[in-house]
Amino acid sequence: MAVSITQSLIDGLLMGGVYALAALGVSLIFGVMKITNFAHGALITVGMFVAYFMFAQLGVSPYVSLPITILVMFLLGYGIQKLTINPIITAPSHNQLLLTQGLSIVLENLLLVLFTANYKSISLPGFDKAIKFGALSINKPKLIAFGLVVLASLGVYLLLQKTDIGHAISATSVQREGATLMGIKVERINAIAFGIGVACAGVAGALLAPIQYISPTVGEGFQLKCFVIAVFGGLGNIWGAVVAGLIIGVVESVASLALGGSWSEMVIYLIFILVLLFKPTGLFGKKTR
C-alpha cells in the first residue's frame, strides 16, 4: 500500500509538472489579455504533432527538436494573436471565448486533415525502460519531461523578470492604460505574450508526445485541467501555476488510485468549483472577492 501510494505520488508529481507548464501559458495569456484561451488544448496537440512530425520524418527525438518546437509554436501564437485575437481585444468576453473555440475547431481538424485520426506514438529506443528504485519505478520520458519543464518554467520566469520585454509584459498585465502611457507598445506585447503562452502549450505537448498516444483531439482532455490549474494558481501568477500544477497532478494521481480513473476527474472539477467560488484569486491571491 505504502509503495503504491508513493508510486502514485511520484507519477502525479511528474505529470503535474507538465500540466503546470501548459497551464502557465493559460495564466500568462489571461494575465496580459484577460482572455480565457479555449484553443489551448488544441495548441498542446499541435505541439505534440510538431514533435511527432520531426520524429517521423527526420528521426529526431522530441527532446532534441525542442528548440524548433518552441520557435514554431511561438511564431504560430504570435501570428494567431495578430490576425484573430487582436481585432477583438475589446469585444465582450463571449465573443472572445467563441473565437478561441473556433480556433480550436480549426486547429484540431487541420491536424485531422494532415495526419488522419489514427493513433500515433513515439517510441524512443532506450527510453522505454523504467528506472527502478526497489519496488518503485520511474518512467524515463516522464522524468525527462519534468526536468525540462523545470528548465522551461525557469526560462519563462527569467524572461519575465530580467528582460525589457518581460518587464513590459508584466507592466501590461498589471495596468494596461498605464503601460500604454509609459510608451509600451501594448499590441506588440500582447502578441509576444500570446506567443510565449502558446510556446508553453507546445513544449508541454512535445514532452507529452513520448508519454502517451497522439491524436488530433487528445489535447481536449488537458485543456480543462489547464484552466483548473491556472485559476487555482491565480490567473496571471506564474509560480502559482507551477505549484498548483504539481498539486493537481498529485491529487489526480492519488484520486485515481483511491477512486478509479474516471471518478478522479470529478475530484479535480470539484476543486475547480470550490476554488472559483471561495478563492477565485487563487492560492497566492492577495484578496478574495
Binding site: 484573430t84 481585432p87 477583438i88 469585444a91 465573443n95 467563441l98 473565437l99 473556433g102 480556433l103 480550436s104 475547431i105 480549426v106 484540431e108 481538424n109 487541420l110 491536424l111 485531422l112 486533415v113 488522419t116 485520426a117 488530433p216
Partner: peptide
C-alpha cells in the same frame, strides 16, 4: 472527401464572422 476539411472551413467561417461582425 477529406475528413476534417468541413470542420476547418466551418471554424474559419466562425472566426472570420466574429472578427468582421462583432
Amino acid at each position: 472527401g477529406l475528413p476534417g476539411m468541413n470542420m476547418v472551413t466551418y471554424g474559419l467561417i466562425l472566426v472570420v464572422v466574429i472578427i468582421a461582425l462583432p
